[in-house]
Amino acid sequence: MIPVSFDYVAPTTVDDAVRELAAAGEDGKVLAGGQSLLPVLRMRLAAPAKVIDLGRVPELHGVREDGNDVVIGAMTTHYEVQRDPLVREHLSLIALATETVADPQVRHRGTFGGSLCHADPAGDLLAPALALDAVMTVAGPSGRRSIPAAEFFVDYFTTAMAEDELLVEVRMPKFTGWHAHYEKFSVSAQAWSVVSVGVAVRVSGVTIAEARIGLTNMAATPVRAMAVEEALVGQPAFAHNITAAAAHAAENTSPTTDGDADGEFRSHLARVLTGRAVTAAIG
């Protein structure tokens, strides 16, 4: 199907992009990698009067080091993120989760920021970003502001950004030396997660000193498995301790029932995959 006609602009600065978005109002749509927007345009599920393409804004691209943080530009592609040496060294959970996103073609076009802004609870990058205390920098007509991941994801396909704001970059503290693993269950290759678990742990000797665990598709937004984290910290990294901690994975979640799985099965998967992910992370 052919989309309805619209005006197309390709600003070269963040300020220009913000002005274009504000001027378009509710009739404007931001184009990042296009993996979410283009299909709905073709099916005429969206009919914007103006599309603002962010691909020519240099500030939105790339990965950089800023003191104790790693900063990922919103328009950095999945392919670039998963291969970036800073990400692989300091944010290995992000690199591992990004490797599971769709297929190589999508990873070459889709963007890190676009995936977060789409806010699909089955998206692979939301839970790892939440677990690693990501902070989103957004820009709007009133300037820039920072939104922690715990406040950024509001509901299904909904973020805390205003309609006239756009994501500029994502900042995460370094987790250098931490062990990480991303365990994903899907019904077919390259499909959305039925449930996934992202784990980052710091081990001191044989003891788990710190743990960060994020759950994908266990609620309308990504979820931190806080009960599992608390049960792991201070425990020797033995199988029975990991199993006991993983039993808490579904606590304070609200998994949905759909064509792929019901809520009860998702809760079962969360417990099983959490145990596997922690075990694999520790090695």
Rank of each mutant, 00 (worst) to 15 (best):
P141H: 01
R56L: 15
H61N: 12
D103S: 09
H78L: 01
A139L: 05
L130T: 08
I52H: 00
D84C: 12
V40G: 06
H61D: 12
A95E: 11
P104C: 12
V63E: 05
R56V: 02
Q105E: 15
A122Q: 11
K50S: 10
A97N: 09
L60I: 07
L45T: 10
R144Y: 10
T76N: 03
H108Y: 10
A127T: 11
G114I: 00
R88A: 15
E65F: 03
L37S: 11
T76D: 02
D69F: 11
R42K: 15
G114D: 07
T100S: 15
H90L: 04
A129I: 15
E65S: 14
A47C: 13
Q35G: 09
M75Y: 02
L132P: 10
R109W: 10
V106Q: 03
R145K: 15
Y79W: 15
A131I: 05
P128K: 02
T76M: 00
V81R: 03
V101E: 03
G143M: 00
T111V: 02
P48R: 01
N68I: 07
A74M: 06
V40A: 05
H78Q: 13
H90S: 08
R44E: 12
V40C: 05
E59C: 08
G62R: 06
H78I: 00
R144K: 13
V40W: 03
L132I: 09
A97S: 15
V138N: 03
N68R: 14
A47G: 10
A49F: 10
L86E: 11
S36L: 06
L91A: 08
G34L: 04
Q82K: 13
R56A: 15
V81Q: 05
P58L: 01
A74T: 07
R42Q: 14
A47E: 15
L132Q: 12
R144M: 13
E65Y: 04
A129F: 08
G114H: 04
V135Y: 03
H118Q: 14
A119G: 09
M75N: 11
